[in-house]
Computed example of a mutant assay.
Amino acid sequence: MITRDRARFLLIAAACAPDFGPATARAAFLVTPEGFARAEQSAEDNRYMADATAYDVAAALAAHRRLHRALAASFPVVAFPGDPATPDATFPNNAFATARVDGRGRLVIGRMRHEVRQRETGREDIRRFFADVLGYETVDLSTQTSPCELTGALVIDRARGLGFAGLSERCDEDGARRMHEAFGLRATFVFDLAPGEYHTNVVLAVLGGRAMLYAPKGFCDAVDAEAIASLYAPHAFALDPDEAAAFAANSIALDSGCVWMSARADAALHPATRRGLAQAGFCVQSVDIDAIEAAGGSLRCCVAEIY
């Protein structure tokens, strides 16, 4: 079921047990920021991107190595090389995502809005890694016309099989439907992001299927945010504008007890938010990736989960 109807969605979602699948991934992959530079096409609808003078390739590569080392201490992490022709590829979760559908691994390839990012989805090394090495089937959405930037546009509660699809230039209603089907979800709620927001995962994080961080002003209608929050109460935490601007919602749980976010987000986190996460059973781990955040995304955007 995929719907814009809040009441209908909540009725279905509230009855979904956390038995859909593992709440967190078993591994992840990254793409290194080779040729790290401002992609002007992406800047058309990503207000978080810095101007070109803020991009530092050496600093971005160093930040990415810190991220890889930190995450690899928790679970397996594979890194693919970047390409100067795809300057946004360091955020691979928008282009590639995985799921387990009917017990089988599935690679989902997204349809990117901008041509500079469409180049990423044609990478044969990533496609072949999943098809030939892991034996995953491929669902390729990259050739259809509706934008659907995967787990940038669609936040997924993997434990209950629920999707939260925020519409923007990067995802339309048909794209949301295609993602709902590709991930094999039980129910997906479709809503509009606030003007100026480009991805849902900048304003919403569902953590391990049991907690939530969200920026109410990132939703066109705050009632939509509160409806989603009701599913995770009392562990749904509204972020203030400072926390949201620091990418606190662009965070991810990679196991049952830890939330990862950037050092910038960690520093902006209010004590009440931190206490709330602790009460939900999560500690906070962070990595300094300031150099990468110049490109308009943060830690969660760098992590493509492998389920």
Results as ranks from 00 to 15, higher is better:
His180Arg: 10
His180Phe: 13
His180Gly: 08
His180Thr: 09
Glu181Leu: 13
Glu181Thr: 15
Glu181Gln: 14
Ala182Glu: 10
Ala182Met: 11
Ala182Val: 11
Phe183Pro: 11
Gly184Tyr: 02
Gly184Gln: 05
Gly184Met: 06
Gly184Trp: 01
Gly184Glu: 04
Gly184Arg: 03
Leu185Pro: 04
Leu185Ala: 02
Leu185Ile: 02
Leu185Cys: 09
Arg186Asp: 08
Arg186Phe: 02
Thr188Asp: 09
Thr188Gly: 07
Phe189Asn: 00
Phe189Trp: 05
Val190Tyr: 05
Val190Gly: 08
Val190Asp: 03
Val190Pro: 06
Val190Ile: 15
Phe191Tyr: 15
Phe191Leu: 07
Asp192Ala: 14
Leu193Tyr: 03
Leu193Thr: 06
Leu193Gln: 06
Leu193His: 07
Leu193Met: 14
Leu193Trp: 02
Ala194Met: 03
Ala194Lys: 05
Ala194Asn: 03
Ala194Gln: 06
Ala194Thr: 04
Pro195Cys: 11
Pro195His: 12
Pro195Glu: 13
Pro195Asn: 12
Gly196Ser: 07
Gly196Leu: 06
Gly196Phe: 05
Glu197Ala: 10
Tyr198Pro: 06
Tyr198Asp: 15
Tyr198Leu: 14
His199Pro: 11
His199Arg: 05
His199Asn: 10
His199Phe: 14
His199Gln: 13
Thr200Phe: 08
Thr200Leu: 04
Thr200Glu: 11
Thr200Gln: 12
Asn201Leu: 01
Asn201Phe: 01
Val202Thr: 15
Val202Asn: 12
Val203Thr: 15
Val203Pro: 00
Leu204Trp: 05
Leu204Gln: 08
Leu204Met: 12
Ala205Met: 09
Ala205Tyr: 08
Ala205Gln: 10
Ala205Arg: 10
Val206Asp: 06
Val206Gln: 12
Val206Ala: 04
Val206His: 04
Val206Lys: 05
Val206Arg: 06
Leu207Ala: 12
Leu207Arg: 09
Leu207Asn: 12
Gly208His: 09
Gly208Phe: 05
Gly208Met: 09
Gly209His: 00
Gly209Asn: 02
Arg210Lys: 15
Arg210Glu: 10
Arg210Asp: 11
Arg210Pro: 11
Ala211Arg: 03
Ala211Lys: 03
Met212Asn: 05
Met212Arg: 06
Leu213Ile: 12
Leu213Cys: 13
Leu213Ala: 12
Leu213Asn: 11
Tyr214Ile: 07
Ala215Asn: 09
Ala215Tyr: 14
Ala215His: 13
Ala215Leu: 00
Lys217Asn: 13
Gly218Trp: 03
Gly218Arg: 08
Gly218Ser: 09
Phe219Val: 10
Phe219Leu: 07
Phe219Glu: 08
Cys220Trp: 10
Cys220Arg: 15
Asp221Glu: 14
Asp221Phe: 09
Asp221His: 13
Asp221Lys: 11
Ala222Glu: 15
Ala222Phe: 00
Ala222Pro: 09
Ala222Trp: 01
Val223Ile: 13
Val223Cys: 12
Val223Lys: 14
Asp224Gly: 03
Asp224Thr: 05
Ala225Glu: 00
Ala225Val: 01
Ala225Phe: 01
Ala225Trp: 02
Ala225Thr: 00
Glu226Val: 02
Glu226Arg: 13
Glu226Ser: 07
Glu226Thr: 09
Glu226Phe: 01
Ala227His: 00
Ile228Met: 15
Ile228Trp: 04
Ile228Gln: 02
Ile228Ala: 03
Ala229Glu: 05
Ala229Trp: 03
Ala229Met: 03
Ser230Gly: 06
Leu231Met: 07
Tyr232Thr: 01
Tyr232Ala: 07
